[in-house]
Lab assay of single mutants.
Amino acid sequence: LVRYRTISKIPQITLNFVDLKGDPFLASPTSDREIIAPKIKERTHNVTEKVTQVLSLGADVLPEYKLQAPRIHRWTILHYSPFKAVWDWLILLLVIYTAVFTPYSAAFLLKETEEGPPATECGYACQPLAVVDLIVDIMFIVDILINFRTTYVNANEEVVSHPGRIAVHYFKGWFLIDMVAAIPFDLLIFGSGSEELIGLLKTARLLRLVRVARKLDRYSEYGAAVLFLLMCTFALIAHWLACIWYAIGNMEQPHMDSRIGWLHNLGDQIGKPYNSSGLGGPSIKDKYVTALYFTFSSLTSVGFGNVSPNTNSEKIFSICVMLIGSLMYASIFGNVSAIIQRLYSGTARYHTQMLRVREFIRFHQIPNPLRQRLEEYFQHAWSYTNGIDMNAVLKGFPECLQADICLHLNRSLLQHCKPFRGATKGCLRALAMKFKTTHAPPGDTLVHAGDLLTALYFISRGSIEILRGDVVVAILGKNDIFGEPLNLYARPGKSNGDVRALTYCDLHKIHR
């Protein structure tokens, strides 16, 4: 019993810090008490220290592992850092350059016999395009090294910054494609005289377009951006097909006994025919423009016929181009109408809503002055909100995010209106959640004399007048207030005048 009563005193000691020596009952000389009392004092002292730490809000209350900052290894790049964003855009520009100039170089340097010394005699450094290609190869190699040090988000939505895990993730992902696209074939085969082989191998750079397509997928929600990307894709495919079309004609031209190829026909049409040795002929500019003209006309199913396939190889390629053109029509131009419709969806919704308003007016036989006010209010409210119901949009977000959005939407009023000066951010967040926005066209009466005042109004834009009878008592403008002081009276009061809008007004109100 003594032991039980001794232990039962522990909660009292913990909360009230009572010393055991003052209790005459606990001072009985028993061996059990002498053993338990020192333990009680020690526990009391420890609990006292913990309570003191909690009340003082000291940093040592938290466990040590929670006080440590997340460790980022040296030379690790955050995937959302500004440097990584700028670097990704730079790589994107280099990939676009590669997609345009690599097929052009591979096709127009394929057994090209233009006048001038061969590239091997001039030297590697004197070729501007080769120098640019070398810079692109170096940048792609540097990009691989950067990807080995860039964080990523795993399946659990955690940012991984450990170098080993980053390397394994990159090896399992895009490393092989990036490595093949970054191989400097110019340096590996330079001086061997195989410019045709170098041009063909350099087309491996186009593998990076797969990554670019995935990154550009984030802009699919913007109709104008999608339309622009589709047109660029169409032009890029036409450019690639033009390079292939020229390569076919250029390879067949020296081996044909009869002059029936499209390059021969082009030379005869523009007065620059090929001679018996295969030299001469149109310039590279004429060849490229004509090839691009043929691919565009074939892809769009126009086909004027002034550039036509004559050999079997050219006919087979033309059939493939027609098939590609039909697929592009289905996948690209078939979506253009939907994209344009999405661009004008706001206008369509406006006309639909206006039609419903006019049908309501016609069905209920609203008189002319009231009908005009109804239409003007709808037009003004639509121009202010673009038909978007803010309350319906915010309803799907958590309250903390709703408060931040409301604070942002009402920031101008909260910053410049005098009653809100000096208020804490928590108070402003709470008030912003209570605001209701209303609009009024010129001549609209917001409050009639004798109406119950259940709200306090803040003028965000425009001006109003307060009338008693036919006498203008006051004219209020931006950041002015009218209405009933909230919670100042037990019952809502009545208006002693009319409140009429002089201009288009936007008002925020808080109800009782």
Score class of each variant (00 low, 15 high):
127 Q>S: 08
184 P>Y: 01
395 K>T: 14
74 R>A: 08
327 L>A: 03
209 L>A: 08
401 L>R: 02
211 R>K: 07
119 A>M: 05
254 P>C: 15
256 M>E: 15
203 T>D: 01
132 V>H: 01
214 R>Y: 05
124 Y>D: 01
375 E>M: 12
211 R>T: 01
106 A>P: 01
402 Q>G: 02
308 S>W: 01
146 I>R: 01
330 A>F: 09
425 K>W: 01
185 F>I: 06
299 L>C: 01
331 S>Q: 01
141 I>V: 07
262 W>C: 01
334 G>W: 03
365 Q>Y: 01
329 Y>P: 05
421 R>K: 12
103 P>A: 01
183 I>V: 10
77 I>T: 03
333 F>A: 03
325 G>H: 01
324 I>H: 01
190 F>W: 13
159 V>D: 01
445 T>N: 04
175 F>P: 01
395 K>G: 11
240 W>R: 01
214 R>T: 04
437 T>D: 07
215 K>Q: 04
216 L>K: 04
331 S>I: 07
440 A>V: 12
424 T>R: 08
325 G>D: 01
269 Q>T: 03
226 V>F: 05
215 K>T: 03
274 Y>N: 01
439 H>N: 08
134 L>N: 01
107 A>R: 01
177 I>F: 07
66 K>A: 07
305 G>H: 01
84 K>A: 03
406 C>W: 03
264 H>F: 04
69 A>H: 06
348 A>T: 10
108 F>I: 01
248 I>L: 03
257 D>E: 11
258 S>P: 05
198 I>K: 06
349 R>P: 04
348 A>I: 06
449 A>W: 01
434 K>H: 10
418 K>M: 08
179 M>E: 01
71 R>M: 11
325 G>C: 01
388 I>D: 13
425 K>R: 09
230 L>Q: 14
162 H>A: 14
121 E>S: 14
191 G>T: 09
327 L>Q: 02
290 T>S: 01
330 A>C: 03
417 C>D: 06
437 T>R: 09
201 L>Q: 01
303 G>H: 03
306 N>K: 01
104 Y>C: 01
291 A>C: 01
205 R>I: 01
267 G>M: 01
100 V>D: 01
256 M>Q: 15
93 L>T: 05
225 A>K: 01
107 A>D: 01
323 L>C: 05
239 H>W: 01
376 E>K: 15
246 Y>H: 01
275 N>C: 01
178 D>A: 01
259 R>A: 15
414 L>G: 03
428 L>R: 10
370 L>Q: 01
449 A>I: 08
333 F>G: 03
365 Q>G: 08
72 I>N: 03
110 L>H: 07
131 V>W: 02
377 Y>E: 15
414 L>M: 08
298 S>A: 14
165 R>H: 05
428 L>G: 02
109 L>G: 13
234 F>V: 04
114 E>F: 11
161 S>G: 11
297 S>H: 01
121 E>W: 07
170 Y>N: 01
405 I>S: 02
251 M>Q: 03
428 L>W: 05
188 L>A: 13
332 I>C: 06
209 L>N: 01
373 R>Y: 04
377 Y>F: 05
341 Q>H: 14
206 L>G: 04
103 P>G: 01
314 E>D: 01
178 D>G: 01
169 H>R: 05
205 R>F: 01
245 W>G: 01
100 V>S: 01
241 L>R: 01
343 L>F: 14
358 R>V: 01
237 I>A: 04
309 P>I: 01
84 K>Y: 04
191 G>F: 04
78 L>T: 05
270 I>L: 08
436 K>V: 09
311 T>W: 01
293 Y>F: 11
234 F>W: 08
173 G>R: 11
381 A>P: 03
437 T>P: 12
348 A>D: 03
370 L>C: 03
360 F>N: 01
290 T>A: 01
324 I>F: 08
341 Q>S: 10
406 C>M: 08
291 A>W: 01
272 K>G: 01
107 A>V: 04
414 L>I: 09
73 H>I: 05
294 F>N: 01
126 C>W: 01
295 T>W: 01
182 A>V: 10
205 R>V: 03
227 L>R: 01
174 W>N: 04
364 H>V: 02
161 S>I: 11
215 K>N: 04
401 L>T: 03
400 C>P: 09
295 T>E: 01
248 I>P: 01
191 G>I: 04
206 L>K: 01
244 I>G: 04
406 C>D: 01
338 A>H: 15
108 F>K: 02
171 F>S: 04
159 V>F: 05
377 Y>I: 01
437 T>I: 08
446 L>E: 01
93 L>H: 01
99 A>P: 01
424 T>L: 02
251 M>E: 03
120 T>A: 08
168 V>E: 05
65 Y>R: 10
178 D>M: 01
252 E>N: 04
203 T>P: 01
137 D>A: 06
384 Y>K: 15
112 E>S: 11
90 L>E: 01
401 L>Q: 01
410 N>Q: 12
259 R>N: 14
426 G>H: 02
73 H>V: 05
130 A>W: 11
162 H>W: 07
365 Q>K: 12
333 F>D: 03
336 V>H: 02
167 A>T: 04
166 I>D: 01
115 E>L: 14
394 L>T: 03
246 Y>K: 01
263 L>H: 01
189 I>W: 13
355 L>N: 15
65 Y>K: 08
305 G>K: 01
222 Y>R: 04
269 Q>W: 01
221 E>W: 04
257 D>S: 11
71 R>L: 15
400 C>T: 06
264 H>K: 06
195 E>F: 15
322 M>L: 03
382 W>R: 03
419 P>K: 02
346 G>P: 12
446 L>F: 09
299 L>H: 01
414 L>W: 09
427 C>M: 09
395 K>Q: 08
343 L>A: 12
155 A>P: 13
117 P>C: 04
237 I>F: 05
287 K>T: 01
115 E>V: 14
343 L>P: 03
80 Y>Q: 10
65 Y>P: 05
432 A>R: 01
249 G>A: 03
364 H>L: 04
132 V>S: 03
280 G>L: 01
136 V>A: 12
233 T>W: 09
219 Y>F: 14
266 L>K: 04
116 G>S: 07
175 F>I: 01
293 Y>H: 13
110 L>G: 13
178 D>F: 01
220 S>A: 11
328 M>Q: 01
138 I>L: 12
116 G>K: 09
211 R>Q: 09
228 F>M: 13
269 Q>K: 01
256 M>W: 03
361 I>P: 01
181 A>P: 03
158 E>C: 05
220 S>L: 05
202 K>A: 01
287 K>I: 04
289 V>P: 01
97 Y>P: 01
105 S>V: 05
380 H>M: 04
441 P>N: 05
285 K>V: 14
93 L>N: 01
278 G>L: 01
384 Y>M: 05
328 M>D: 01
322 M>Y: 01
69 A>V: 06
89 W>E: 01
65 Y>G: 05
275 N>H: 04
198 I>L: 13
264 H>L: 01
174 W>F: 10
209 L>M: 10
369 P>H: 03
283 S>K: 01
127 Q>I: 01
330 A>H: 15
287 K>V: 04
434 K>P: 01
170 Y>K: 01
311 T>D: 01
426 G>M: 03
257 D>C: 01
420 F>R: 03
350 Y>S: 02
73 H>Q: 09
272 K>C: 01
106 A>H: 01
286 D>F: 01
109 L>Q: 09
94 L>P: 07
355 L>G: 13
432 A>N: 01
97 Y>S: 01
435 F>E: 02
245 W>D: 01
439 H>Q: 15
447 V>G: 03
307 V>C: 01
358 R>I: 01
251 M>N: 08
240 W>T: 01
155 A>H: 13
331 S>G: 08
308 S>T: 09
339 I>Q: 04
303 G>A: 13
268 D>Y: 05
76 T>D: 01
200 L>N: 03
412 S>V: 09
